[in-house]
Structures are given as C-alpha cells and as structure tokens.
C-alpha cells in the first residue's frame, strides 16, 4: 500500500510539474519575444576590439537569471540518463535562461544610454539543491562592455 501511495504522489507531482511548467515556459517565451523586439536597437558585437576610435566611456554591463526546473523535466531527464542521448526538456530551459540573461544585459546597457555591447561572454552554472542527487537550478550570466559616448570638452 505504501508503494501505491508513493506512485500516487509521484503522478500528482508529475502532472503539476508538467502543467505549471509548460505554462510558465510559454509565458516566459512570450515575454522574451516581446522584449527582444523592443530592445532590437541594442547591438551585440562579440569581438574584443571595438571598431571605433572616437572617445568612449567603457562600462561593464551584465544580466543574470536563475531558472529552476520542474518535476516533469527532472523525471524525463532521469529517463534519458538511462538511455542516453539528447535531453530536449533541458534545452528549452537553458535557451530561455540565456535569452533572458542577454535581455537583462541589454536592459542594463539601455538604461546607461549605450547602444553597442562588445565582447559579450557567458557563464553557466548549476546550483544544486540540498540533496546532491537532485538537480537544482541553472544560472546564466551574460556580461559585456557597453561603450558610451563621451561628450567632448569645450576646449577640444
């Protein structure tokens, strides 16, 4: 009987994870697309040398986000762990996290008045939960240098 109760709880958590998780994902993607369209004027140039000689002020800008997994994704990942292969469920997770991090970096730059971000780099980590076996959440940090125009002094 203990086993049946366990299975019941498991099924309930799965359903909850799937329904809540896919809803959260849809809403997040909608928000991402909307903001990407709004911030299209901020350009990312992932090279180290800025192709300009005019005096600028360089400012580090970054955006980071931590996105958690849901029970459904973790279960599917456990299955793929046995069979091997690509984990589709996690791909949307890291993609969302990356796009969100880039958007936040762009928002940071926009707030400062910049329009180009150079040398964009990323850092991804996994923050594990308490139980070492269980997966925790994914953190993505996007950072770069925004070049802001400097007003020339009158004497120049």
């Amino acid at each position: 009987m203990g086993l049946l109760i366990q299975l019941g709880i498991f099924a309930a958590l799965l359903a909850l994870g799937f329904l809540a998780g896919s809803r959260a994902e849809r809403k997040h993607y909608a928000s991402i697309r909307e903001r990407e369209a709004a911030l299209r004027h901020i350009l990312l140039v992932p090279v180290r040398r800025a192709p300009t000689r005019s005096p600028c002020r360089a400012q580090l800008v970054c955006g980071s986000v931590v996105i958690g997994m849901d029970y459904f994704k973790m279960t599917v990942a456990a299955f793929v762990n046995i069979l091997g292969g690509r984990i589709n469920a996690y791909e949307t997770l890291v993609e969302r996290a990356r796009r969100e991090a880039i958007l936040r970096m762009k928002e940071n730059a926009a707030a400062l008045g910049g329009s180009h971000i150079f040398n964009v780099k990323f850092s991804t980590t996994n923050l594990r939960g308490q139980n070492n076996q269980q997966s925790g959440c994914v953190e993505v940090v996007a950072y770069g240098t925004a070049l802001l125009p400097v007003r020339l002094e009158a004497g120049n």
Binding site: F18, V76, L83, N88, A89, E91, E95
Partner: peptide, 22 residues
C-alpha cells in the same frame, strides 16, 4: 537550439524504454 519539442510524447516513449531497460 531547441529541437522539436514533444514533451509528453518524449515522456511516454522514453519512460517506457528506460523503465524496460532498467
């Protein structure tokens, strides 16, 4: 970067296979 997403189908197909293999 996100290949065809069929979460429910993946769940059942991969679940059955994984459980079977195990």
């Amino acid at each position: 970067n996100v290949s065809g997403q069929h979460p429910l189908r993946d769940f059942f197909v991969q679940g059955t296979l994984a459980v079977g293999v195990f």
